[in-house]
């Protein structure tokens, strides 16, 4: 990598390779494409919103690797009651 590239903050190629592979392998192993994951997220949001108030933009749903196993991790911040009342 040249000095110029470094100045512009370009990532080393091995780091790109690892990051890209991390994503590709999770999707290969589960057969869940990014599109399927998006659809799943939408359904999940609709269902949860029926029961509790959430901020859709704050929801984070992702596939994560744990050794050779995969997990679906959902992080869904709940709006606090006080804020709901005042808002």
């Amino acid at each position: 990598m040249s000095f110029f590239e470094r100045l512009r903050g370009r990532k080393r190629s091995a780091d790109s390779a690892k990051e890209r592979l991390q994503l590709v392998l999770v999707h290969d192993r589960t057969d869940i494409t990014p599109a399927v994951l998006e659809a799943l997220k939408d359904d999940l949001l609709t269902t949860i919103s029926r029961h509790v108030e959430i901020d859709p933009a704050a929801v984070h749903i992702a596939l994560e690797r744990d050794g050779r196993a995969q997990r679906l991790i959902a992080d869904i911040p709940l709006r606090s009651v006080s804020r709901r009342r005042s808002g």
């Binding site: 080393r12 190629s13 091995a14 780091d15 390779a17 690892k18 592979l21 991390q22 392998l25």
Partner: peptide, 12 residues
């Protein structure tokens, strides 16, 4: 850093 290291491959 232009090739995955052995540790990277094992981790993946």
């Amino acid at each position: 850093h232009d090739m995955l290291s052995a540790d990277d491959v094992v981790d993946l």
